[in-house]
Amino acid sequence: MTTSDLADALGDGRRMARITTFHPRRGRVSTRHEDALTRLWPRYGVDIAEPYPPLDTTALFGRRAPLVLEIGSGMGDATAAMAAADPGRDYLAVEVFPPGLGNLLAVVEERELANVRVAQGDALNLLQHMLAPGSLDAVHVYFPDPWPKLKHHKRRLIQPDNVALLRTRLAVGGVLHCATDWAAYAEQMAEVLNAADGLANLHDGFAPRPAHRPVTKFERRGLAAGRQIFDLLYRRTS
C-alpha cells in the first residue's frame, strides 16, 4: 500500500456512516516513512476496509499468542517499547495517520519485532467486523482525542456503546487500559466504565501510573502544560 492509498482510504470523515472518534489527519510523510510503508505494508499491514473480512490473527502473526490491541498508536514508539518488553504477547496497533504507520513499521524492522502488526482505519470497524469475540487479552486506549468542545463529546471513543463492544472482544480476564491528560474526559471515562456490565475496576478509582506504559508524546505535552495524567484499568469479569 502506498501513502496515497492510505490517505485515500482515510478519506473525509464526513463521508463515513459512523461518527468518527478521530481527526482524519494526513500530514507530511518523510522519505523514511514512505519507504517503510511501501516495503513493509504487505508483510505487517492490515487494511480495515469493506467488506471487513474476519482477521485470522494466528496467520497474521505466525503463531497463537495472547493479543493486545492498541487503539490510536500515534507514531508507535510506545507500542514498540511495550512489544519489545513483552515478547510473549502479540500487538496489533491501529492508527489512521500515515506518518505514524510508517514510523512504527520502520521501528519494527529496525528492532526486529516479530510480535507487532499495524492496521489502518477505524478501530471500531475492526472490532465490530474483523475481530472475534473474546479474542483480545488487552485493549490499550492511550490519550485518545479528548474532543473538548461540548458539541463534540459524542465523538469521544469511550462511550457506553463502544465500551460494550470492547468488552465483547476482550477475553474474560482481559484488561481495558485507558489513559488521558484531560480531567473532564477522565471523569467521563470513569463514569462510563463503572456503569458498564461485565467490567470491574482494578483499583479504587484512578490507577497509579503503571510501569509498563511508556511515556508518550501526548503525555509529555500534557505534563508540560501542567495537566494531570489519569490511568484507568478495568478487567472483564463476564
Rank of each mutant, 00 (worst) to 15 (best):
A78S: 10
G76V: 09
T180Y: 07
D197R: 14
Y185N: 01
A9Q: 12
A106H: 07
C178G: 05
P24H: 06
R18A: 11
N115M: 04
P98L: 07
H129T: 09
Q228E: 13
R111Y: 12
Q128T: 15
L10N: 13
A85G: 08
Q128H: 12
K149L: 10
V116N: 00
A83Q: 01
M82P: 06
G173T: 08
D122E: 07
E70P: 03
W41T: 01
V96I: 12
A49N: 09
L202K: 11
T180M: 07
L105Q: 01
A195Y: 13
R111N: 11
A164P: 00
L10F: 13
V96K: 06
Y234V: 05
L40Q: 08
L193E: 04
L60E: 01
D181E: 06
H140D: 08
P214F: 03
T3L: 12
D161V: 14
P98G: 04
E109C: 07
F143N: 00
G76C: 04
W182D: 02
Q188W: 15
D47L: 11
G173S: 06
V118D: 00
T57K: 01
L127C: 06
A65W: 04
A84R: 11
K149R: 14
A225W: 11
R213K: 10
L150R: 13
I19T: 15
E219K: 00
L193G: 01
N115W: 03
Y52M: 01
A200Y: 14
R39T: 11
Y234E: 04
L170P: 01
W147Q: 06
L104W: 08
H23V: 14
D145M: 07
A225M: 11
K154C: 07
G45F: 02
A119S: 08
P210H: 10
P66K: 10
L60M: 03
R117S: 05
L176H: 02
R25L: 12
T168A: 08
Y52K: 02
A196D: 09
I71W: 00
A84P: 07
A132Y: 07
A106Q: 05
F61R: 02
A138V: 10
A83T: 08
P148W: 15
A186I: 04
D35P: 14
R155C: 04
L199E: 05
L104E: 03
H212T: 14
V107W: 03
V96W: 04
A138W: 10
M1C: 10
G76A: 07
S135E: 09
G205F: 09
C178S: 09
I158A: 00
L105W: 00
L127T: 06
V46M: 08
R18H: 11
V108N: 02
A17N: 12
R111L: 11
G205I: 12
L166H: 07
A119T: 05
D8R: 14
